[in-house]
Write a protein that binds this DNA or RNA. Sequence first.
DNA 1: CTGAAAGCGCTTACAG
DNA 2: CTGAAAGCGCTTACAG
Lengths: 337, 337
Amino acid sequence: MKIYTIRDVAKLAGVSVTTVSRVLNHRPDVNAATREKVERVMAECNFVGNASARSLKQLDGDVAALILRGRSNIFLSQLAEMMLQFAGETGVSFLLETIDEKADEFQTALRLTHEKRARGFIFVGSRLDGRAQVLRGLEAPLVFATVPARELELPRVASVAVDDRRMGRLAMETLIQAGHRRIAVFGGRRDQGDALAERYLGAREACETAGVPFDESRYVETRFSLSDAYGAARAFFPTRGDTTAVFAMSDLVAMGVIRALKDMGKSVPEDVSVFGFDGIEMGKYFLPSLTTIAQPQEEIARKSVEVLLDMMNGGEGRHVTLPAALIRRESVAAPRK
Amino acid sequence: MKIYTIRDVAKLAGVSVTTVSRVLNHRPDVNAATREKVERVMAECNFVGNASARSLKQLDGDVAALILRGRSNIFLSQLAEMMLQFAGETGVSFLLETIDEKADEFQTALRLTHEKRARGFIFVGSRLDGRAQVLRGLEAPLVFATVPARELELPRVASVAVDDRRMGRLAMETLIQAGHRRIAVFGGRRDQGDALAERYLGAREACETAGVPFDESRYVETRFSLSDAYGAARAFFPTRGDTTAVFAMSDLVAMGVIRALKDMGKSVPEDVSVFGFDGIEMGKYFLPSLTTIAQPQEEIARKSVEVLLDMMNGGEGRHVTLPAALIRRESVAAPRK
DNA sequence: CTGAAAGCGCTTACAG
DNA sequence: CTGAAAGCGCTTACAG
């Protein structure tokens, strides 16, 4: 099967490559008859332009990249997919780069700047942990999705996220109001200055306000996967069996914890209440269904793309906070008397 | 931030672009001192080659594409990710193209052949439904992953899948042996000659062999998502309440059905047993955990990549059948007396 | 409305 | 071991 180039088409249509290029790009300045002839030839040859050649020329071409770290977080991968969806409706072409959890997303951005000439980035579920300087090396506009980057007072940096601290507080308040006092928190590392740290801070605030001392030894670090959460819960409960509620910082973690509790002969929410975070679809179907904080996934996706596009057109960086919703379902109840 | 080209590097290092190119591509024929000098300059400039320019020249470059239809099937997206993983270890560069469920994957392949010069394809979870002729238009080697394409006697076509018919039979046999007689099947459209049709045929065979008549009105068509399965089950059970078991052709469907049963006041497996398919991770954590047929995901991924690579090197097409495993967990039990 | 020509950044025979 | 030159397929001023 021959692969036709623009030159082949030009020859077959009896015009110049310039004209074919114009037709290809839907430019108005082509005679209708000429256009039609060229289009017919292109259809006959099954012609499709070579993407490399095009982007080699269009160095100014608007390319943006989505950088997603890790493949295991459903919430984040879905978020990235949605962004791709919204991006498709704009003129800018977006590419999704999924990198390993241990990889450095800023290095990746740097690489894509050169390799693919990316001119704007959205980091999905990134972490800042004090790497603000690295960001200065990146001149392109940057959007952090689901990451609070407010303190980063860099000119071309934006963020789109929920108010994680407030939501962490709300989750904890909900458990306290239900009557719980011995509450465990299953989250990530607390020292990284990311969304998880914010949720932790919010949870602590709720405890202080309510006069319920938060017991540091009930903070459990876990990766956000079913199996890690399961393992962490199996290790935690045998020694802290008096815990009556868990605030899990992701729905996936909540599910792993619930299964572990079940396997240790405890039922949810009767023996232990479990509160999730994110609002993934499965949470509605899981048994028990998850009480959780639902992040406005679609809104985050849409807004992130919108803000990046605006910045690529010279707009200012800004920090958008979107409202999240508390969803009460089955996994949380009052503690046993 | 200046973007350096190979020419800039050449100038800075005091050599020709040819030499820089050689260093870039780790060719052996470069003087050690020269190589070192060039490498130092590249490091200083943060130089990264332009991918478009490279692939424009290397038209013979080995590019293969993974075509995944739909984003909602976790099993298939994970499969694609695994393939990417394995592909990374080979010399061939793979690109993943995720298309809409309603899009035509063969048209997509045709487009990628031109646009990205892809020279080999893996279709993840595709369907043949009588489009064998279209395939002739594609000269590149093709691998169908999780799709039985055995009947397709095309030279450059391969497939990697489990024996869906046998596994469908095994699932049904398991339910019959547990004592069930009124069994519903939740699957896809039966007329499409795909893996699902095979599972259906296998299930029917099991019924015939056991002398249990299969009631066609207990076949429920559903898309493979939690919400569709949920809706289908809510519509089905009120009129067919005597059903004691369900064979769901995907774990996701099984979970949707289980939640629906729960919401209708039935418990699983006490009132109704539910059998899944695929063996996704969540099935282990769901309550009840799913009895299912586990497809060897990693093996399918590895083998698909391996077969494609071999064919791209001139190897023959072949049809690989991999063993699947019956996993007995909580969602299937004997029917109530 | 159309075309000849330059050039995007790279690779690769070819010559030395 | 090294370099000058051609060319991959396209786009885009520029001239007509």
